[in-house]
């Protein structure tokens, strides 16, 4: 019911196409992370979804309402934390939230109660009556987040929600948002450059590049898309012949790290069979110390998909076999 749909959404500024034919669906209760390089169109997309920017073409349905026709209704059910929020610095945190509560037409007793709860949730209860001018960057971000939630939104749009916060603050906010999602089923649409957070926090991820959605799905779907699902790290004892033997391996392998004691190499081959690999290790008489599968993380997926030379419609990117280093030479990583 409180999902988000974008249908062929476009935004152009003169000849510059900031957002190009964007089509996606976010189901009610999902946590969707939109990632992309700087200038990819993330903020423009969020603003169009929230109704503060009109699309040049296309349609957006938020919480079942068409933003072109019912933007006021949408604004009652959404909360938006813009990337850079200004404040009325002469107010204190409590006054600031009360001002917005009144703009949402929330009755005074309810507003006061909600404000107390929110300030407590975002960790600002102790500073509720201090002027905003004295708040730190992280505290202001917490206050902005509280403001975005003042109307008890069903859909929350967050543009860089943990920007400027210390690691503990980031964790607290993530936990709070997860609780909100689990307890109240709030749909969360966030944009962030903190890819580790996005990969752990979001169940759906979209990658935007130059205004186009180049990938959309769960983390596993994205891994499959870049053909990087199977990578195996093998650690063997470093012997005199180890590296030369590796250069003759039948697998697509890359030497990852060489120390006096060990050699790490990564095998990237979707069709590899474990038995075959173990047989080869035995045959070559390697002293195996570690063997594990490595899952591609979101940073790698992101870098690969947003690489200008990558084209998902042509040959999928695979890890190339590295040139064989000479015995005794430590290859650069």
């Amino acid at each position: 019911m409180y999902g988000i749909s974008a249908i062929a959404l476009e935004k152009t500024y003169g000849s510059f196409r900031a957002v190009d034919s964007l089509t996606f669906n976010v189901k009610s209760g999902d946590i969707f992370g939109l990632i992309g390089p700087n200038g990819a169109g993330k903020t423009t997309t969020m603003r169009m979804l929230c109704g503060t920017l009109s699309p040049t073409a296309g349609k957006t349905i938020v919480g079942g309402f068409d933003i072109a026709k019912e933007s006021i209704k949408i604004k009652t059910i959404i909360g938006f934390l813009p990337e850079s929020t200004g404040f009325y610095n002469w107010m204190n945190g409590e006054e600031y939230l009360y001002y917005f509560a009144r703009l949402y037409n929330i009755k005074e007793p309810i507003a006061r109660k909600n404000i107390r709860d929110l300030l407590d949730r975002v960790g600002l209860a102790a500073k509720a009556f201090a002027p905003i001018a004295y708040y730190s960057r992280g505290m202001k971000q917490r206050l902005a987040l509280a403001r975005a939630m003042i109307n008890d939104p069903k859909i929350l749009f967050l543009d860089e929600p943990t920007l400027g916060m210390d690691p503990r603050g980031q964790q607290e906010i993530q936990k709070m948002l997860l609780d909100l999602n689990h307890e109240k089923g709030v749909t969360i649409f966030l944009s962030s450059h903190a890819l580790t957070d996005v990969s752990t926090f979001c169940n759906q991820i979209g990658i935007l590049n130059r205004g186009r959605l180049i990938a959309h799905g769960s983390l596993n779907d994205l891994r499959k898309l870049v053909n990087g699902s199977t990578r195996i790290l093998v650690r063997i004892l470093n012997t005199q012949e180890a590296i030369s033997k590796l250069s003759r391996s039948p697998f697509n392998n890359t030497i990852d790290k060489v120390t006096e004691e060990s050699v790490d190499f990564i095998i990237s081959d979707d069709n590899i069979e474990f038995n075959q690999l173990v047989d080869w290790i035995r045959k070559e008489n390697f002293k195996l110390t570690e063997l594990r599968q490595i899952k591609m993380n979101l940073d790698e997926i992101f870098l690969r998909l947003t690489n200008p030379t990558y084209d998902k419609h042509s040959t999928p990117v695979t890890i190339k076999k590295s040139p064989s280093p000479q015995v005794g030479q430590t290859p650069s990583k």
Partner: peptide, 17 residues
């Protein structure tokens, strides 16, 4: 001044015409 201070976008997000 609200636009320059960055407070205007928050006003536009409220359900007021």
């Amino acid at each position: 001044t609200e636009i320059e201070a960055g407070t205007f976008e928050c006003l536009l997000l409220t359900p007021i015409k």
